[in-house]
Amino acid sequence: MPLVLLAPIAGAHAPEAGSPAPAIGWSPEPWVLACLATSLLLYLAGLLRLWRKAGAGRGVGKARAASFGAGWLALVVALVSPLDALGGFLFSAHMVQHEVLMIVAAPLLVMGRPLAVWTWALPAMWRSRTSGLVRLPAVAGTWNVLTYAPVAWALHGLALWVWHLPPLFEAALRSPGVHSLQHTSFLVTALLFWWPPLGGASRAGHGGSMLYLFTTMVHTGALGALLTFSTVPWYPAYGASTPAFGFDLLEDQRLGGLIMWVPAGLAYLAVALAAAARLLRGEPARA
Rank of each mutant, 00 (worst) to 15 (best):
144 N>L: 05
166 P>G: 03
115 L>Q: 13
146 L>S: 01
133 L>P: 00
182 Q>P: 06
120 W>E: 14
158 L>D: 01
107 P>H: 03
201 A>N: 11
195 W>Y: 15
194 W>G: 06
157 G>K: 05
111 M>C: 12
154 A>F: 14
126 W>Q: 13
166 P>W: 06
206 H>P: 11
148 Y>Q: 04
171 A>V: 10
214 F>P: 05
208 G>Q: 01
157 G>S: 11
185 S>W: 10
145 V>H: 05
125 M>Q: 05
146 L>V: 01
120 W>M: 00
107 P>T: 10
126 W>H: 10
123 P>D: 10
133 L>Q: 01
206 H>T: 09
199 G>R: 03
197 P>T: 06
163 W>D: 05
179 H>I: 13
141 G>I: 10
135 R>Y: 00
123 P>C: 05
100 V>N: 13
121 A>L: 02
160 L>N: 07
169 F>G: 05
144 N>D: 09
106 A>T: 02
114 P>N: 12
151 V>R: 05
136 L>M: 14
187 L>H: 04
175 S>L: 11
189 T>W: 07
155 L>H: 11
161 W>I: 06
168 L>V: 01
124 A>N: 10
140 A>F: 07
126 W>S: 13
179 H>G: 13
159 A>R: 07
142 T>I: 10
181 L>W: 04
101 L>S: 09
112 G>I: 02
123 P>Y: 03
114 P>F: 09
201 A>I: 14
111 M>Q: 10
140 A>N: 12
139 V>I: 15
132 G>A: 08
145 V>A: 15
160 L>W: 12
184 T>Y: 04
178 V>C: 02
127 R>W: 09
214 F>S: 14
